[in-house]
Nucleic acid binder design. Structure first.
Length: 908
RNA sequence: AGGCGGGUAGCUCAGUGGUAGAGCGGGGCUUUUACACGGCCCGGGUCGCAGGUUCAAUCCCUGUCCCGCCUACCA
């Protein structure tokens, strides 16, 4: 066996194993395997995407769950794929086209441009999938799906046609959110409100047509007055009551607009109490327009430039038009002042351009009928949110859901399967291109397909079943649908999770997943969102190259506590460095074990513990570590069951570092020194080391797949052992190894050792110097234990000798009472004579301090226990515990007081 | 405006109706043959504030102040 390098070097280990696992097909789940299914679908990253910390977190979480369940003999399937990402991808390719060829997509035409996108996708799209491999993601690559591939398109079209047939998809002229830069409609969810934008509330006057005066309106968008078709006032507003029904002259355009009364739109307390109404460019005005049957005049073209309706302002961009309109109003002396106003402005999520509400004919999904079953499913617990609190947010949104605008004026995406007849003007929605118009019989020459494509999310919402073959009835669907867990960031709860629930219930009649695990966002260490513009991003790929995927994964897992709303993971490279130190610690513990396996026989050891360890056969340290391994396994497994990922990672960490390394390996070192080569005693210690480490590797494998595989491979194994840690069984608690007696004995021994070390530290006893430890105990039970393990105490606390006495039996005469350091370990008095080691110092101050603490605790408990109501009402366990504690404190106080007496009065 | 979270050690965060924990950071000691990416020891918190329920509250209830998030609106 080659000796391992002194420090852990992830770069030399990680790439090797991923290739090996893939070659052996470990990631593939057979849909017909006779095992309980466990399925996760990946939130498909954009085909344009590059791995960022958010992906790294999701990947870590999903891979932990997948590997964990796979090792627990589930038919674990984690499905990879990518999203075609309509606008994002189109923009990337348009940019490239412009840069390389100086052309726009219009220069190429639709067909050629789409071809270019496919070429781009072949060339550079989907790099993120390779980055997921660097992370160690155990994805079932045979099932990789792309939302634009033919099978998936079939599903998208099928969903559209069915919903249309059911009357749940309709076409209508509505006020929609329009991005003048992307030149497409976007859904309500794709509009981000920039809270607290500094704006201006501008007042100007409309003269009354009869010359009887004017009415002053307030607006943040003066340019929209070109499309005003009314001015609204509150019906009960005395300032304006007499003007209701009168006409106003439009200052620039040859038309008049009426003064109308509307109690919904107008808040008489705001501004001037009069509101200009632009039904074609404001959602509230649109509704007002519908209520009052007002004309709706669109004043912008699709680029946000004033059109023919704008008279002299025609051709001006909307922001230039704003200035021009204001200037003209000044000229006409209609300006009536302005004041600053903080208000929210909607921006396109994709390009940050200010969104323009526009009147437009688009396709919509009627959401209410779809939302109802989804709400019920969550209410009935068919799908659970983790953390549960997110269900409230979900309900709130679902109860107030609005129709979804799904058509996009793009070229990249699933084209709307609707055809318009040139002769009868009827619309035909069909799964395949119709040869003739079913309404008038016109041939294919008169039929023209809708130019629009569907919102990317209209394909994403089918993901959990379209990836498994829907609309065909496949074996995959039968086995893996509904999926087990959906993991994703809470930011796409509405975009994706809620919609998948609706689609799943509608098309599959079953929820798409049993559990929704919503993880937090990853921010920088100050809590600011990571962004390339701000330059505060941490690139996971760099991190992996520097510290390894295992360190990155463990760091993220460690930080993944339940996603409290409004809280994020504040991530810094320091977290990865900490995790890397842990990896190094594991590495070195493995080195130690490996260096001490002379003559070890795994099969022979396996026979010894086949029925659990025989208490008489094993020494305390071995019995203890066997028991602690099982406690750790229980803690980790239970935490994972409950989606407490950080707890699981921390439990494993605590076991490895604080129990296996800090205690057991140290105990084993001493034990091995005592045990002759080839002895049974030696075999048992070696076996315990291997068992503890091997179990720890399996426990940690879902978190740190590479390192654990590497170490696992190097450990000696019995005959018939699997070829890879990936196909071993995940450790679950084995109660035959639980050993309460050994754990409590060990706990006492540890306390004594820590007490002696504490004295050594405080008194600055030089490292190599051995001391004598005198232990005074009150009860025979403890005396027996300590007598039995005083060798261990001596070894671990560097003692030349450990003596145990009943309290009261004096050590005096043998040691100078002037120079003894004392500490309490529970009610055991620990004394270390220091004559000839360090000069006597005054012990009293320290003992007084210790005593004060004990007395304080004792008084608290005594008071509590003397309260009759407490004794009467508290549960018996609490009483017993407190009484035992009180007895221990009293004993400890007696001993400390005696120690102080021995020291005599304070020296000056 | 409404809803949802959070305020616990210097920092980041766990946690529980029975006198508080981790990681990092801080201080001291330590190069003893797994690891200085290490070891040992130590210090550090009236659990936001005020009331209430209880034998007992950091935990439950009410109020209050900060902070964050979401939804809607903002002429």
């Amino acid at each position: 066996m080659a000796e391992l390098p002194k420090n852990y070097e992830p770069a030399s280990i990680e790439p090797r194993w991923y290739a090996e696992w893939t070659a052996r097909g470990y990631f593939h789940a057979d849909a017909s395997a006779p095992k309980a299914p466990f399925a996760i679908v990946i939130p498909p990253p954009n085909v344009t995407g590059f791995l960022h910390m958010g992906h790294a977190l999701g990947t870590t979480i999903e891979d932990i769950f997948t590997r964990w369940r796979r090792m627990a003999a589930y038919n674990a399937m984690w499905l990879p794929g990518m999203d075609h990402a309509g606008i994002a991808t189109q923009m990337v390719v348009e940019r490239e086209l412009k840069a390389k060829e100086g052309k726009t997509r219009h220069d190429l035409g639709r067909e050629e441009f789409v071809k270019r996108i496919w070429e781009w996708r072949e060339r550079t799209g989907g790099r993120i999938l390779d980055q997921l491999k660097m992370m160690g993601a155990s994805l079932d690559w045979e099932r990789t799906t792309f939302t634009m591939e033919p099978q998936y398109s079939t599903a998208v079209i099928e969903a559209f046609v069915r919903l249309h047939e059911e009357g749940l998809i309709y076409r209508a002229k509505r006020l929609i959110n329009w991005c003048v830069s992307c030149r497409t409609a976007i859904s309500d969810l794709e509009v981000d409100f920039d809270e607290g934008a500094q704006g201006e509330l501008y007042d100007f006057a409309y003269p009354l047509a009869d010359g009887s005066g004017e009415i002053v309106v307030a607006t943040t968008r003066p340019e929209t007055m070109l499309g005003d078709t009314a001015v609204a006032v509150h019906p009960d507003d005395p300032r304006h009551k007499d003007k209701i029904g009168k006409m106003l002259d439009h200052p620039f355009l040859d038309r008049q607009v009426p003064v109308i009364a509307d109690a919904i739109l107008v808040d008489p307390k705001f501004g001037t109490g009069a509101v200009k109404v632009t039904p074609a460019h404001d959602p509230n005005d649109f509704e007002t327009g519908q209520r009052h049957n007002l004309p709706m005049i669109s004043i912008f073209d699709e680029a946000g430039v004033v059109n023919d309706e704008g008279g002299e302002f025609k051709g001006l961009d909307r922001f230039k038009a704003r200035k021009a309109v204001k200037a003209r109003l000044e000229e006409l002396r209609l300006a009536r002042g302005s004041k600053p106003l903080v208000h929210a402005v909607g921006h396109c999520q994709r390009c940050e351009t200010v969104v323009e509400p526009m009147l437009s004919t688009q396709w919509f999904v009627k959401m209410e009928p779809l939302a109802k079953p989804a709400i019920e499913a969550v209410e009935q617990g068919k799908t659970k949110f983790v953390p549960e609190t997110w269900s409230k947010t979900f309900f709130h949104w679902m109860h107030n859901i609005r129709d979804w605008c799904i058509s996009r004026q793009l070229w990249w995406g699933h084209r709307v399967p609707a055809w318009y007849c040139g002769s009868c003007k009827e619309i035909t929605v069909a799964r395949t291109t119709p040869n003739f118009c079913p309404h008038c019989g016109g041939g294919s020459d008169v039929l023209k397909q809708d130019d629009d494509v569907l919102d990317t999310w209209f394909s994403s919402w089918l993901w959990p079943f379209a990836t498994l073959g829907w609309p065909n009835e496949t074996r995959e669907l039968k086995t893996f649908y509904p999926t087990t867990v959906l993991d994703t960031g809470y930011d796409i709860l509405f975009f994706w999770v809620a919609r998948m629930l609706m689609a799943g219930l509608h098309f599959m009649k079953k929820v798409p997943f049993r559990t929704v695990y919503l993880h937090t966002m990853v921010t920088d260490e100050k809590g600011d969102k990571m962004s390339k513009v701000k330059g505060n991003t941490i690139d996971p790929v760099d991190v992996i190259q520097q510290h390894g995927a295992d360190a990155l994964r463990f760091a993220l897992a460690w930080l993944t506590t339940s996603a409290a709303q409004g809280k994020n993971i504040k991530f810094s490279i320091g977290n990865v460095e900490d995790a890397r130190r842990f990896a190094n610690k594991i590495w070195n513990s493995a080195r130690y074990v490996q260096m001490n396996l002379d003559g070890y026989d795994a099969d022979r050891f396996a026979d010894q513990v086949a029925e659990g360890p025989d208490r008489a056969e094993f020494d305390l340290p071995e019995r203890w570590i066997f028991s602690r391994v099982q406690r750790a396994a229980e803690a980790v497994d239970t935490a994972l069951e409950e989606y407490r990922i950080a707890d699981a990672a921390q439990a494993a960490y605590h076991f490895v570092w604080n129990e296996l390394c800090d205690w057991y390996i140290e105990l084993a070192k001493a034990g091995l020194t005592r045990a002759p080569a080839g002895s049974e005693a030696r075999l048992k210690i070696q076996g315990a080391l291997v068992t503890a480490l091997e179990t720890a590797m399996r426990l940690l494998h879902p978190f740190m797949p590479f390192l654990t595989e590497e170490i696992w491979q190097q450990l000696p194994k019995g005959s018939g052992s699997p070829q890879s840690i990936m196909i071993t069984l995940y450790p679950v608690r084995d109660v035959r190894f639980y050993d309460d007696a050994s754990e409590s004995s060990m706990a006492l021994v540890q306390r004594i050792i820590v007490a002696i070390r504490g004295i050594r530290g405080e008194k600055n006893v030089p490292g190599p110097t051995k001391v004598v430890a005198l232990l005074a105990v009150t009860d025979d039970y403890k005396k027996t234990i300590l007598e039995g393990y005083k060798l261990i105490i001596a070894e671990q606390a560097r003692c030349s000798e450990v003596r145990v006495r009943r309290s009261g039996a004096s050590f005096s005469g043998e040691f100078s009472l002037d120079n003894i350091a004392t500490a309490m370990a529970g009610d055991v008095e620990v004394m270390v004579p220091l004559d000839g080691i360090v000069n006597p110092g005054d012990e009293r101050e320290k003992l007084d301090k210790d005593l004060a603490k004990l007395v304080n605790d004792r008084d608290y408990l005594a008071k509590k226990l003397s309260n009759p109501k407490f004794v009467e009402r508290a549960p018996i366990e609490v009483l017993d515990k407190d009484r035992a504690k009180l007895a221990e404190l009293n004993a400890a106080i007696d001993k400390l007081q005696a120690a102080l007496m021995r020291l005599g009065p304070k020296k000056s």
